[in-house]
Design a protein around this nucleic acid. Structure first.
Lengths: 198, 198
DNA sequence: TGTACATCAGTGAACGCGCGTTCACTGATGTAC
DNA sequence: TGTACATCAGTGAACGCGCGTTCACTGATGTAC
């Protein structure tokens, strides 16, 4: 059992990566330390060589999850730096694949309820990402009137997070798809169209 | 320790009432059976005189929570059967008091993430309420074109649940209020106005 | 370059604790006569 | 109406279990000479 310095930080990153995915899938209460370590191919005792406590992991994993769910679904299969347009973001966010795979998706949506019940530190990290995402959408909408742009960004983000949350919770596949499609069409028609008309 | 038949069903209702509130506040994992019984002034052993299992309670409490969070915030303080308009629903749903008191509010929003990770039975109950709420909003919007009404109902409900979820999770009070106000104004201006113009 | 030693990532058993659940018991309620 | 008995809501201790956390230990890595 070798353990160079490089291997340690590699293991650390791997643990954060797994936790960031599993917390989004299972919620903050759904992943135990033993499960996490086993999924990394390790035993549970080693956990405390990497984190001071479960809460410590929680915050690191939340940071990572918020970051890689940023500008959600930027990249589709092949194209690495797919061009970032409002329409592309809406299509990605409200896609069936994003609905079906919360583990790699937007942490703001996947952990909305969890963070609302969490401690101050987690909520602060989350708040920063929400504000960043509002700004990103505002910028993509590129409205002439910037206060109207921000309002539309807030509405669009609220609608997208709500729609994906509902689409994930609902057990009727048709209703779930209807939610995604309806909100997708509305946002693209109403906002992007308006924005382009200027 | 008396226990007439009437007292039993009274106790049962009280347990469901407390659980329906606490699950919305704490999530499905946040309430233990011992806590529930203590909050009802009883000891934990009695739980199984009322429910076959924790899962059984979960489903009864979810049913109750979905029902009393229906047509959310219908009633303000005094007026019992406050008139139910689209504007009134939007104002109530996106109010600070609804944000600050998830325990008595809309279960669809408060338990969105939790239900997404829950079993088939919980998701089925939830699905029914989502569909009912879509229909209620559709009806309140009373659009001439009924498919446009449904689309607007879906968009409005997605935006409201997302906005309240974000407003609850974010730790910056100003940002939280901005989300509520922005979505409230947008929905009232854009949808109700449109609907009235017809 | 080769040897001796300190470091420390990872192991795996153990800790106390709270969980959901079970159970023998209590005593007021409701029923039979 | 009064007495004897069955029922069963609620009690409180105990169950096995998984949780987060601790700890003595192992053995490859990296350093000192």
């Amino acid at each position: 059992m070798g353990h160079s310095q490089a291997e340690k930080s590699q293991t650390h990153d791997e643990l954060v990566r797994i936790a960031a995915r599993r917390f989004r899938e299972l919620g903050f209460d759904g992943l135990s330390i033993a499960d996490l370590m086993n999924q990394a191919g390790l035993t549970q005792g080693g956990f405390y060589k990497h984190f001071a406590s479960r809460e410590d992991l929680l915050l690191e994993a939340l940071t990572a999850a918020l970051k890689d769910g940023e500008a959600p679904r930027k990249k589709k299969q092949g194209k690495s730096p797919a061009k970032l347009s409002f329409d592309a973001v809406v299509d990605g966010y409200l896609s069936e694949s994003h609905r079906d795979d919360p583990g790699t998706g937007c942490a703001v949506g996947a952990l909305m309820n969890d963070v609302g019940r969490a401690g101050a530190a987690a909520r602060k990290l989350y708040t920063g990402q929400v504000e960043r995402n509002f700004r990103l959408l505002d910028q993509l909408l590129g409205a002439a009137d910037s206060s109207a742009g921000r309002a539309e960004a807030i509405l669009a983000y609220s609608a997208m997070t709500g729609a994906v949350g509902l689409a994930r919770a609902v057990s009727d596949r048709n209703l779930s798809n209807e939610i995604l499609i309806t909100v997708r069409n509305y946002l693209k028609d109403e906002f992007q169209a308006k924005s382009q008309a200027k």
